[in-house]
Amino acid sequence: MRALGIEGAWVHEPRIHDDARGSFHEWFRADVLRAATGRTMTVAQANRSVSRLGVVRGVHYGAVPPGQAKYVTCVRGAVLDVVVDLRTGSPTFARWEAVTLDDRTHRAVFLAEGLGHGFAALTDDATVVYLCSTPYAPEHERGIDPFDGDLGIRWPAGAGAVLSDRDRRAPSLAEARARGLLPRYPSR
């Protein structure tokens, strides 16, 4: 695993074993995560989403505490996966990083509690699976407008053609900050 430029975010680039039968790789190992991040991730829930080309999901995060760490990969198609530092007081506050996750490289992204997460489907039937450290709790779920100019996320052309009502109504970063909805740094 290698660290991204935002504290609490890492990318895993697995070794893929190909042969005449197909391929094999380890997409998650707790010991590798712990060695790279110094953290142990308890898996409380696993999710799967399937998205059409152009769909944007997020930017989502959990209220801290308890927050929700995630380990995310794309098992079919491709997505542009985005991690956003939403922790007030963080040296990288409002900074974002993007990693292409796809069914060829099998990269995975780990993001700690307090970081925002979103993605844009680069293909039809883009299938994302993710492990979560806490179960879904609607009372703790938060979101930021993925197209907020203060974030300046460079989504691919055509991204956002399909957006949920919840994401369409999400507050801007400034609104969320003014309302005290953002996590504080450090969040753990």
Rank of each mutant, 00 (worst) to 15 (best):
M1I: 13
R2H: 15
L4A: 06
A9L: 09
E13D: 14
F24L: 09
E26Y: 10
W27I: 08
F28T: 08
F28I: 13
A30Q: 10
A30V: 06
D31Q: 11
V32A: 09
L33Y: 04
G38D: 11
T42R: 14
V43S: 02
Q45C: 12
N47I: 03
S49F: 02
V50G: 05
S51W: 00
S51Q: 05
R52S: 10
G54P: 08
G54C: 10
V59M: 02
H60M: 01
Y61T: 00
Y61S: 01
G62Q: 15
G62E: 11
A63H: 12
A63N: 07
A63W: 03
V64I: 06
G67T: 02
Q68M: 13
C74G: 09
C74R: 10
V75N: 03
V75R: 02
G77Y: 05
G77E: 06
V79F: 03
D81V: 07
V82F: 09
D85P: 08
L86D: 01
T88S: 10
G89V: 12
R95A: 12
A98F: 00
V99L: 02
A108C: 04
L111S: 06
G116E: 04
F119R: 03
A121F: 00
L122K: 04
T127G: 02
V129D: 04
V129L: 04
Y130L: 01
L131N: 01
C132T: 06
T134I: 02
T134F: 01
A137Q: 13
P138H: 03
E139Y: 09
H140T: 06
E141P: 08
I144H: 06
P146G: 04
F147A: 09
D148S: 12
L151D: 01
G152H: 04
I153R: 14
W155C: 14
G158Y: 12
G158T: 15
G158H: 06
A161D: 11
S164T: 13
R168H: 11
R169M: 03
R169F: 01
A170G: 07
L173T: 13
L173K: 13
E175D: 13
G180S: 11
P186Q: 09
